[in-house]
């Protein structure tokens, strides 16, 4: 599904990703953990095409298509979705209007028929129920004045609606209370399917109790320095990152 090889990326003349390799197969969930500032969000942004990053080496392909040559919206059309760590507020842009435009843009790009207002409302109501989101949020401007938790749930709601092939969740759990975490995790689990892969960036083992990953990777200093099964997350929870970084240094 996703294949990243030797990816190097700069912000300005500072290199943040120092040759990163990662393979995610169809239907798999990969957790990415790692210290603050290690490059997790940078990886998510580079994959989704945000301005301000220069890729200097390596490749990233989604189902064989070179992502790095595409506009952000073309990547979305291919099935890439990023749940933002900090979802931006869009004053004056009605949430429903936005969601319908986004869904139809993606459907159009895939050669599928567009939803009319009625069919769209039906679909939205169905997805809302899963996320326990209040319908009134749909009438408001996108994320505008939403609480931190509501913003995160709105991201997962969008994922449920847009049905991506590869979803990147960037710290979707941070800022959520215990109940909201559960709801978000249920929402994510409801989206699991053999055709849908996920990259879940998190700092906490707790989320991974609910969303069981197939693999756990440690990203530090712009590289994946360790990969393992879900037991790696438990080990990290117990011991922190220090021991791996030391081991890696010794190995290098």
């Amino acid at each position: 599904m996703l294949s990243i090889k030797g990816l190097r990326a700069n912000v300005g003349d500072k290199e943040i990703l120092h040759g990163l390799d990662l393979e995610i197969g169809a239907g798999e969930i990969h957790a990415i953990m790692g210290p603050n500032g290690s490059g997790k969000s940078t990886l998510a942004h580079v994959l989704s095409g945000r301005d301000g990053y220069t890729v200097t080496a390596g490749s990233a392909e989604l189902n064989g298509v070179n992502l790095l040559a595409l506009e952000p919206e073309q990547r979305a059309h291919l099935g890439l979705f990023l749940a933002f760590q900090y979802p931006v507020e869009l004053p004056g842009v009605n949430n429903t209007y936005f969601l319908k435009a986004a869904l139809n843009a993606i459907r159009r790009a895939r050669g599928e028929s567009e939803y009319d207002a009625v069919a769209f409302m039906r679909l939205m109501k169905e997805k809302l129920r899963v996320l326990h989101l209040d319908e009134s949020l749909l009438k408001r401007p996108v994320n505008f004045g939403f609480s931190g938790g509501e913003k995160k749930r709105n991201e997962i709601f969008q994922m449920a609606l847009l049905e991506p092939k590869l979803a990147i969740l960037d710290e979707t759990d941070s800022g959520l209370d215990i109940d909201a975490l559960r709801i978000v995790a249920d929402g994510v689990n409801a989206c699991r399917s053999p055709e849908r892969s996920m990259m879940v960036v998190t700092h906490y083992q707790r989320l991974l109790d609910y969303i069981q990953p197939d693999y756990v990777h440690v990203l530090a200093h712009g590289q994946i320095i360790r990969s393992g099964g879900k037991e790696l997350a438990l080990e990290l929870e117990e011991r922190g990152y220090g021991w791996i970084e030391q081991v890696t240094e010794v190995a290098a």
Binding site: E73, H77, F84, A101, A102, A105, L162
Partner: peptide
């Protein structure tokens, strides 16, 4: 804001 919307499939 532009990036957010583009990441959702809008040109």
């Amino acid at each position: 804001m532009l990036f957010y919307l583009q990441s959702r499939g809008l040109t």
